[in-house]
Every structure is written in structure tokens, then in C-alpha cells.
């Protein structure tokens, strides 16, 4: 019985012999040198194009810059959270409609789920930004952004919820039926509470998609992190530094969300379902 556990990653290569060990050392050295060379050339390119010039970076030391970025970030968070809430509610409704007993409702929900899942959020944003106003409906930019993002996310979330419902053991339904519960009660009292617990990590990881979707807020002139970045760029004429800094902020936010989702999944022993992983087509 081996006391250590090997991941597939390590199992692919077995414990090295002397020759392999030497080769690994050489490979490590060579790859470190190549990496150093690559980093050197990137830094050199920044240097010779004068992108390290103080004027491109000094304003990042000022509080006003960060206050403005934080205001943008607050906009991003508002849209993300509102979209998260709406898409969860809508996704849940679509899923419930789909697994319900009414054939017509089920069909409609199925079609809507697949439709929202197969449209880019940007197309939906253009619909609310370009098309709706033509019919004389005026909307605040917040909603022109939030509604389409929510719609796009709801399709995926409906599938996430459905995966959660499918993950509840069959015996639960049978046991509930045997004590005489109705279909509605079985779903509400037995299946949903368990399914929701199962999909929590997946819901959290879906937030990453929502945050990414918010970055096109400038299309509808909503002041999110990206839009405020653009304003700063035109004020300070510091495009390269700003775009890199903001990209790093987005990466860190999404990384944190992903790590949280992994932590939750690990703690509860549930899998993370995303559009590109387990999700059934």
C-alpha cells in the first residue's frame, strides 16, 4: 500500500534514473535561460520604446487615479452582481420550466435556454443598444448592459442547475414519492435544496464569465473599470501602462473568483460545471 498519492501529472513520468535526472537538470537550466532571455527582450522592448518613462507610471501613485479606477470597479461590481442575481433567477426559472410537467412550458424553456446559450452577449448588448431604442424605448445604460449579460448567462446557468438536479440521487425522488409528496413538493422540498448546494461552486465560477462580459460596457457608455480606464488614458496619455495595469486587475479578480469556486468545490466535494467543461450540449 503506497503511503503517497501520485497525481497523473507526476505519474506520466516515472521516478528518474541517473541519465534522466541529468537530462532533467539540463532541461531545467536551458528552459530557465530561455525564460530569462524572453523576459529580457520584453523588458528591453519596453525600455527602447520609452514605455518605462516616469510620466507613464507616476500618476499611478496618485490617490485620485485609484479613486477613479475604484469608481469604475464599483460600476463593474454593480453590473456583475445584478447580472449574477438576475441570471440565477432566470436560469432557475428556465430549468424549472424545462423539468416541469407542462409540455408546452417545458418546450419553450428548452428553446430559450439553448438560444441564450448560443448567442454572444455582445450581440444581445447590440440588441438592447441599437435595436430597442429604434422602437422608442429609452433605457439607462446600466440596464442596457445588465439585461443582455444576464440573458446570456441565464442559458448557461439553467444548464448548470439542471446538472445539479441530475446529480441528486434518484433514490431521493423515489423515497419522497413513497411518502406521498406531490411532484411540486418533491422538487421544492427535496430536490432543489440539494441541487442548489451541489451547484454553488459552479455558480461562483460562472461569475467570471459575467465579469468578463462587463468589459464591453463602453459600448453603451457605462462607467465600468474598462470605460474609466479609457478616460484615464486620454487624460494622461498613458495607454500601454494603463491597459496592462487594468488587465492585471481583471486577471486578479477572476483568479480570486476561480480560487473561491475551487475552494468551495473542494470543501463540498462537488464538481465545477462550466460552459466548456462538463456542460452537456
Amino acid at each position: 500500500m503506497s503511503a503517497h498519492t501520485t497525481s497523473m501529472r507526476d505519474a506520466l513520468y516515472e521516478a528518474p534514473g541517473p541519465k534522466t535526472r541529468r537530462r532533467t537538470v539540463i532541461g531545467t537550466v536551458v528552459s530557465l535561460v530561455l525564460l530569462a532571455v524572453a523576459i529580457f527582450f520584453i523588458i528591453r522592448q519596453f525600455y527602447i520604446t520609452d514605455q518605462f518613462n516616469e510620466r507613464y507610471w507616476s500618476f499611478l501613485l496618485e490617490w485620485s487615479t485609484w479613486r477613479f479606477l475604484l469608481e469604475g470597479l464599483w460600476g463593474t461590481i454593480q453590473v456583475a452582481i445584478m447580472s449574477g442575481i438576475i441570471s440565477m433567477a432566470l436560469g432557475l426559472l428556465l430549468m424549472l420550466g424545462r423539468i416541469g410537467q407542462n409540455k408546452i412550458v417545458s418546450g419553450i424553456c428548452h428553446v430559450l435556454t439553448d438560444l441564450f446559450r448560443s448567442l454572444p452577449s455582445l450581440l444581445l448588448i447590440y440588441f438592447f443598444f441599437l435595436v430597442i431604442p429604434k422602437y422608442g424605448i429609452r433605457m439607462p445604460s446600466f440596464w442596457m448592459l445588465t439585461i443582455p449579460i444576464s440573458l446570456a448567462a441565464s442559458g448557461v446557468l439553467a444548464e448548470v442547475f439542471r446538472a445539479g438536479v441530475n446529480a441528486v440521487p434518484k433514490g431521493q425522488t423515489e423515497a419522497a414519492m413513497s411518502i406521498g409528496l406531490t411532484h411540486g413538493k418533491i422538487v421544492r422540498k427535496i430536490i432543489l435544496p440539494q441541487a442548489l448546494r451541489i451547484v454553488i461552486p459552479s455558480l461562483v465560477s460562472q461569475l467570471v464569465v459575467v465579469v468578463k462580459d462587463t468589459t464591453v460596457a463602453y459600448v453603451v457608455s457605462f462607467p465600468d473599470l474598462m470605460q474609466n480606464t479609457r478616460v484615464l488614458i486620454s487624460n494622461y496619455d498613458a495607454l500601454v501602462s494603463m491597459y496592462f495595469v487594468v488587465a492585471i486587475i481583471y486577471i486578479l479578480i477572476n483568479y480570486a473568483i476561480n480560487q473561491l469556486s475551487i475552494y468551495l468545490a473542494h470543501r463540498s466535494g462537488n464538481k465545477i460545471v462550466t460552459r466548456t467543461s462538463e456542460n452537456p450540449v
Binding site: T24, T28, S31, L35, V208, T215, M226, V246, A247, Y250
Partner: peptide, 26 residues
């Protein structure tokens, strides 16, 4: 990422974390 050469692993993992988390628009 599956290679036994540590720097390659680290770079591979880092690559994935950066590009799965960056918004494509950004």
C-alpha cells in the same frame, strides 16, 4: 504542464491562469 521540467510547468500553469482569467476584450 505535465513535463518533469519545473520551469516549464510553472510557465504552463501561469499561462493558463493568465489567459483563462483575462477578459478577451482587455
Amino acid at each position: 504542464r505535465v513535463s518533469p521540467i519545473k520551469p516549464l510547468r510553472v510557465v504552463g500553469d501561469f499561462y493558463v491562469q493568465v489567459f483563462r482569467n483575462i477578459p478577451t476584450i482587455s
